[in-house]
């Protein structure tokens, strides 16, 4: 665990927590894109409640509306109908209060800024002093294994390294809510394991709330307290699988071998296949 993250876990054992506070509340959310010729039904009647400290994984076939759902929470997309609240506010108010950090599906780095200045971008907007900005950038880049690349430009990095820079950027301003859209999609297995471990420790240590999109069942089970399985377009929620009961909160890579882990993974797979069944 990096020194930057305070609040050691032992002080707040999960069992002693008061009734969990709802951070994100989604009710009957429907979203239809008005494409040029015909409407695209991206989300249909999605309801989901996410408590503080939850780690929610969204899993579902490509094009089912996972990104769309995150964008609604982030106030980057307006729902056609339904209610969404973030921290008890509208998504817009939450956005203006910088309530969340968003790791986009693509790195979205600014090519005219060095790696370091990409990471400090949100800190500049928040008006932090320069020394602190650089300090935090150094810590976060170290966390994602990119120490020594501060002076490089994004286009001098590989795709996976760029995505890690964008993760460091989202972590740099220490938001309570993290929205991550396939952040590890472009990484090799070993780096991915390493970052999964870092992420789960970070989450455990800081009590952040995470919404995480992935296509990897193992990753979803390893990281999540709950897994949301979505159907093909129009995206609906097929199943919400609770992992917290069967798996310990503090996780190590070897729990992936345990029977509980396998059982949950199997259930996720069944849910995904059920969604696909009417396709063929």
């Amino acid at each position: 665990m990096p020194a930057a993250q305070p609040a050691p876990l032992t002080l707040v054992p999960p069992a002693a927590e008061p009734a969990p506070r709802t951070i994100v509340d989604i009710r009957n959310l429907t979203l239809t894109y008005q494409a040029a010729d015909h409407p695209v039904y991206a989300l249909s009647d999605v309801s989901l409640s996410i408590a503080k400290g939850d780690f929610i994984s969204l899993i579902g076939p490509s094009g089912c509306g996972k990104t769309t759902l995150m964008r609604v929470v982030a106030d980057l997309e307006q729902p056609t109908s339904g209610e969404v609240t973030v921290n008890g506010m509208t998504p817009e108010q939450a956005r203006l209060k910088r309530a969340y950090g968003y790791v986009f599906q693509a790195p979205a780095l600014y090519p005219w800024r060095t790696v370091e200045r990409n990471v400090t971008l949100p800190l500049e907007i928040m008006g932090l002093p320069k020394a602190e900005r650089q300090q935090r950038a150094r810590e976060q880049l170290e966390l994602v294994g990119l120490s020594g690349f501060e002076r490089k430009f994004p286009w001098q990095l590989s795709g996976g390294m760029q995505q890690r820079v964008s993760i460091a950027r989202a972590l740099a301003f220490n938001p309570d809510l993290l929205l991550m859209d396939e952040p590890f999609g472009a990484l090799d297995e070993i780096t991915r394991d390493h970052l999964n471990l870092q992420l789960t420790r970070l989450w455990l240590g800081t009590r952040k709330t995470c919404i995480f999109v992935t296509h990897s069942i193992a990753e979803a089970v390893f990281l999540s307290t709950r897994i949301v399985v979505m159907s093909p377009r129009p995206g609906r929620i097929l199943d919400v699988i609770d992992c917290d009961g069967d798996l310990p909160r503090e996780r190590t890579l070897d729990i992936r071998e345990s029977p509980e882990f396998q059982r949950i993974a199997h259930r996720v797979r069944e849910g995904l296949m059920e969604g696909h069944s009417y396709d063929d």
Binding site: R71, L76, R95, K97, R98, F104, A106, A108, I125
Partner: peptide, 21 residues
């Protein structure tokens, strides 16, 4: 690009800041 604009928006950056940065 849209994703670059979305990033600025996600930081609650206003028109002028988005313009400059």
């Amino acid at each position: 690009e849209r994703i670059q604009l979305d990033l600025m928006r996600s930081y609650g950056a206003g028109y002028w800041r988005t313009l400059a940065m």
